[in-house]
């Protein structure tokens, strides 16, 4: 299955609606970083990622590791639009007994490949998946999405070094470069500098992309999938809260759900 640009655009719009709806219903959650990541995830799931809707645990599926596990609304929205999760699942987000846990959790949700919530771990986990795939002689790819603030965690660079050492050519990392972390703008908290140059210096192939230009995103994902010489990093320049005007580039919506009134405004904009 490979969706057209129009189909991807429409799916991203629906996912954005899911994101604001489920965080509003939960009364908590992280809409900002979900909205910055969603175009990237829709493009990946809609074009390159090999998975089975009717068999989410299929052994030889490509893996998608949402290392920035607080962007769980984006994950659940994509799985919902792909037909793996039901409307009732996503609307139970963060409630007792829900399979849609506050942060993505592979133990709770079929179709989720990682238990997140603690930043800095997903690249290492993805590297483990990538090494295992090579041991198995499988061509499956491992995609990891990390936040830009997340790269402040030292473990990210342990993994970057190890991926290069082990020549994990099947490891593809997407950095959601939205410039905002929990407390405020990244540059105020801990400047991370030229993230592309950093990955490059660790021996990775790197490209930058406008993370909301779906045609460009699909192009760079295709490039990444077919690049088999080194581990690959895509630095996706994004806007936190993208698609909902009052959330865009607004640190307040990193970890705050929209009120009922804000939900109404958001859904009008996403109509």
């Amino acid at each position: 299955m490979r969706l057209s640009l129009d189909e991807l655009t429409e799916m991203a719009r629906k996912c954005r609606k899911d994101i604001v709806r489920m965080t509003n219903a939960a009364g908590s959650g992280h809409p900002g970083g979900s909205l910055s990541a969603i175009d990237l995830m829709v493009a990946l799931y809609g074009t390159n990622l090999s998975f089975r809707v009717d068999e989410p645990e299929w052994e030889d599926r490509d893996r998608f590791i949402l290392s920035k596990g607080h962007a769980s609304p984006a994950m659940y929205a994509v799985l919902h639009q792909m037909g793996i999760l039901a409307e009732s699942d996503i609307m139970s987000f963060r409630k007792l007994g829900s399979i849609c846990q506050g942060h993505v959790d592979m133990r709770w949700t079929a179709g989720v490949d990682f238990s997140g919530g603690s930043l800095g771990m997903g690249m290492s986990f993805g590297l483990g998946c990538a090494i295992a795939a090579k041991m198995d002689g499988s061509n499956r790819l491992v995609w990891v999405m990390v936040g830009d603030g997340e790269t402040q965690e030292g473990q990210v660079w342990e993994a970057a070094m190890a991926a290069s050492h082990h020549n994990a050519t099947n490891l593809k990392v997407i950095i959601d470069r939205n410039g905002i972390q929990n407390d405020s703008f990244i540059d105020a908290q801990m400047e991370i500098g030229d993230i592309a140059a950093k990955f490059s210096s660790f021996g990775w192939d790197v490209k930058e992309v406008d993370g909301h230009d779906l045609a460009s995103v699909v192009g760079v994902i295709d490039w990444a999938a077919n690049t088999q010489e080194r581990p690959v990093a895509i630095v996706a320049n994004t806007i936190k809260g993208k698609g909902v005007s009052f959330m865009e580039n607004n640190p307040a919506f990193h970890g705050k759900a929209p009120t009922d009134e804000e939900l109404g405004l958001a859904l009008e904009e996403l109509a």
Binding site: I65, M106, S124, F125, L127, G128, C129, I131, A132, A159
Partner: peptide, 9 residues
Amino acid sequence: LVAAGMASS
């Protein structure tokens, strides 16, 4: 975490 990823595979 590399161990965890391998175990998940």
